[in-house]
């Protein structure tokens, strides 16, 4: 188990380096001199430009720049923006917004997705199943930003059930955006659970459970669900990371000052360090979520061996 964990962490390193380097290279290959972009139309004195180039290692070859940046990043210093603010503090107020948003979305997709999936799986081929299946297909088919705008218009503006935008009203303002953000994954979770339930319903051990004379709810909860939900854990675990990096669209529609918006602005103002910093953190979250899921898998399914 420990050997496995260590090996997995070692395997993460090339992935982390690869992803961040790609982003780093891309960001610093953005056309136009970032220093000049920062200054706008006003010409900067050459000495200032030189100083800034020096400070951000802009004159080194790309690989060296990257190596220097990552060396600092691993000491917790993700660099400074061109405004002189550290990357960590520039986004300090933004992380909680995205985290809360992703969390609401995640809980929603977990609860609603599993419930709908179990319901459909137990009634496979019946009316309920078809409605749920059709509904999830529809959710996947309608682009998230259309769902977001429609939800905002109907539930926010017209019927005034939820706050229209912003984060002023605490957790309440996260409900609607969270549901919208989670809806896409909800459809996948529901389908995954449905298939898994339908497959496990035919398993021999389900027949054994009935032959043991167990009450119906016990057969379903202890024997069917426990087995059927194992594959869903993988999806849900990894999805928390995807929700955070995918929150961009929802944050834009609901005007929430989250990480996504921060990145968007950073990309457009060519603030490379900011983009790379955030990417590094997001990739780290994704990698660790993956590792935790894999370890959890072994706890849930005793047949899994870690070699």
């Amino acid at each position: 188990m420990w050997r496995y964990t260590v090996r997995r962490i070692l395997q993460m390193i090339p992935v982390l380096i690869g992803t961040t380097f790609i982003i780093y290279a891309m960001v610093f290959a953005l056309p136009g001199d970032p220093i000049q972009a920062l200054a706008g139309s006003k010409p900067l004195p050459q000495s200032v430009i030189n100083a800034l180039h020096e400070r951000y290692n802009l004159d080194d070859p790309l690989v060296v720049q990257y190596a220097k940046y990552m060396a600092n990043a691993f000491q917790g210093d993700f660099g400074e923006t061109f405004y002189g603010q550290s990357v960590t503090s520039a986004l300090e107020s933004r992380w909680p917004v995205t985290l809360k948003l992703a969390l609401v979305a995640w809980v929603f997709e977990l609860v609603a997705g599993v419930t709908l999936g179990v319901w459909a799986g137990l009634r496979r081929g019946k009316f309920t199943d078809r409605v749920i299946l059709g509904g999830t297909t529809l959710i996947i088919a309608v682009p998230t930003f259309v769902v977001a705008y429609s939800a905002q218009l109907l539930l926010g503006v017209k019927w005034d059930i939820f706050p229209v935008a912003g984060t002023q009203e605490g957790w309440v303002s996260y409900i609607l955006p969270g549901i919208v953000l989670g809806s896409f994954s909800l459809a996948f979770v529901a389908r995954l659970v449905r298939t898994s339930i339908a497959e496990n319903l035919r398993a021999d051990y389900m027949r054994t459970a009935r032959a043991k004379g167990l009450p119906k709810h016990r057969v379903v909860v202890r024997h069917l669900l426990r087995n059927s939900l194992i594959p869903v854990v993988t999806y849900l675990g990894v999805d928390l990371g995807s929700l955070m990096s995918g929150a961009l669209v929802v944050e834009a529609v609901f005007n929430m000052p989250g990480i996504g918006q921060g990145i968007f602005q950073a990309v457009q103002t060519k603030q490379g360090t900011l983009v790379v910093g955030v990417t590094t953190i997001l990739v780290l979250i994704y990698l660790f979520a993956n590792l935790i899921v894999d370890l959890l898998y072994g706890v849930l399914d005793p047949r899994i061996r870690y070699e």
Binding site: T19, I22, I23, V27, L30, L282
Partner: peptide, 24 residues
């Protein structure tokens, strides 16, 4: 497999956003 992992690990929208901003 490692190359696949790297491409898979890139945040989807973020990656596309950066690349597309890089190419006019």
């Amino acid at each position: 497999s490692r190359i696949t992992d790297i491409a898979f690990g890139l945040p989807f929208i973020l990656g596309a956003l950066v690349v597309l901003t890089a190419f006019p």
